[in-house]
Amino acid sequence: MNQAETQNALYGISAEFADDVTLLAAAHKAREAGYTVMDAYSPVPVHGLHEALGGKRTKLPYIALAGALAGLLGGLWLQIWVSAIEYPMNVGGRPLVSWTSFFPVTFECMILGAALATIGGLFAMCKFPQPYHSIFNTPGFERASNDRYFLCIEAQDPKFDKEAVRTLLNDAGAEAVSEVKP
């Protein structure tokens, strides 16, 4: 990449909005115009925004379920293995696999497995921790965690065209539109 290209390199064009209603409308507009690679940023969750951007429902619940099952089976197996296989102790002929008394530990392991899978899955999906992200180059982005809403159409979008995107975002009621360096 030569210097001119580096200077021209663009992560995307982002627009700043004053409230969630305008942002949501802008997201719908952008989607209707055929943009697919974009993301919106807000200080509080905005309902319907993820769907408006064409996002699918997250698979996180399945990851949690897998964690729960792993914890449940792992915990139960641990106790059965310890009590009946590794160190069987015959106390007056009582059953070795006394599963009812294994229930509490199994339950706790299930919850622990599900919780670890949920937080691990969330971090992996969101790519946390992520100290650097191009979107932070947007002027005034520090207000995205305070009282401003942003929509960024990324340069990777097949339909991306600087001027068209600018016009679209301006028409959608943006307070400011700016180019974002990668």
Partner: peptide, 19 residues
């Protein structure tokens, strides 16, 4: 953790919180 309040992240976040 580099939280930026992105719509995708918020969606996952809310699901995780509910879970």
């Amino acid at each position: 953790m580099g939280w930026r309040g992105s719509a995708v992240d918020w969606h996952r976040y809310e699901v995780a919180y509910l879970l």
